[in-house]
Amino acid sequence: MAPTFRAAVRVLTLLLPVTLLPGTACAATGSFTYTPISELHVLQDPSAVCHPTPAGSRVDNETNQPVALYPTRNCAGHPLAHISPGTTKHTSFEALLPIGFGSGTLVYYTRPHPQHLEDPPSDTCRNIAGDGPVYNQTTSTALLYRHPNCPGTHHHAVAPHHHTDAMFASVLFVD
């Protein structure tokens, strides 16, 4: 082999691994904000005392007595609503007060604080569950799936700098 050809092969041999190295992973730049799934709370045969329920969002009154919902954690002031036995109410409240001593089950849900993902990686499924407002302030489209592990077709596609309300179990960011 000629010396110049050997030198060229050596240079290519040294450069080839650098050329073939995989690129760095892409990430969506920005913040993805979602509302986690509401937490379930159960009161069996609730007593007629004020029950603080920070960030209450829904009540299922399965007791035999009405329940009052309040905007304050100490049941002060006027109630926001009265929930009759056997009914459900979707509204924001901070405390509930059973009217009288009843029997049965009082189920209420509290909404956790919004969660944020900063600069989430693209093309990587994230198993995060949400139910409510979703704000995609990233540079990638967020695909929301109904089930964990991003199977099948997405349920919602949230474009960069857009928002929606959705229930989802996983998300995939795509460029």
Rank of each mutant, 00 (worst) to 15 (best):
T33H: 01
P36S: 04
I37M: 15
S38A: 14
S38V: 02
S38Q: 12
E39P: 00
L40Y: 06
L40Q: 13
H41P: 12
V42K: 10
V42W: 03
Q44L: 05
Q44V: 12
D45F: 03
S47V: 10
A48S: 15
A48Y: 09
V49F: 02
C50P: 02
H51M: 01
T53L: 04
T53H: 02
P54G: 05
P54T: 09
A55N: 15
A55V: 04
G56L: 02
S57Q: 05
R58V: 04
R58F: 12
V59T: 03
V59K: 10
N61R: 13
E62I: 00
T63F: 12
T63L: 06
T63R: 06
T63N: 09
Q65A: 06
Q65E: 06
Q65R: 15
P66M: 04
V67Q: 02
A68I: 02
Y70M: 07
P71H: 09
R73L: 08
C75L: 11
A76Y: 13
H78N: 14
A81F: 08
A81E: 13
I83C: 00
I83Q: 04
S84T: 07
P85F: 00
P85E: 05
G86T: 06
T88D: 05
K89Q: 14
K89L: 14
K89P: 00
F93G: 01
F93V: 03
E94R: 14
A95R: 08
A95W: 10
L96G: 03
L96A: 02
L97H: 13
G100Y: 13
S103P: 00
G104Q: 04
T105F: 01
L106V: 04
L106Y: 04
V107L: 05
Y108P: 02
Y109W: 15
R111N: 04
P112W: 13
P114L: 12
P114K: 15
Q115A: 15
L117A: 02
P120Q: 10
P120M: 09
P120D: 07
P121I: 06
D123G: 07
D123S: 07
C125Q: 11
C125F: 01
C125T: 11
R126V: 11
N127E: 04
I128E: 15
A129Q: 12
G130C: 05
D131H: 08
G132D: 06
P133A: 09
Y135G: 01
N136H: 10
T138M: 13
S140N: 04
T141L: 01
A142L: 06
L143I: 10
L144A: 06
L144Y: 02
L144I: 13
Y145S: 14
H147P: 00
P148R: 15
P148T: 04
C150K: 11
P151K: 11
P151H: 14
H154I: 01
H154G: 01
H154E: 10
H155P: 00
A157R: 10
A157V: 11
V158H: 05
V158T: 08
A159Y: 03
A159I: 03
P160V: 00
H161I: 00
H161C: 01
H162N: 11
T164K: 15
D165V: 07
D165K: 06
A166E: 11
A166Y: 15
M167G: 12
M167S: 14
F168R: 03
A169D: 13
L172Q: 11
F173D: 00
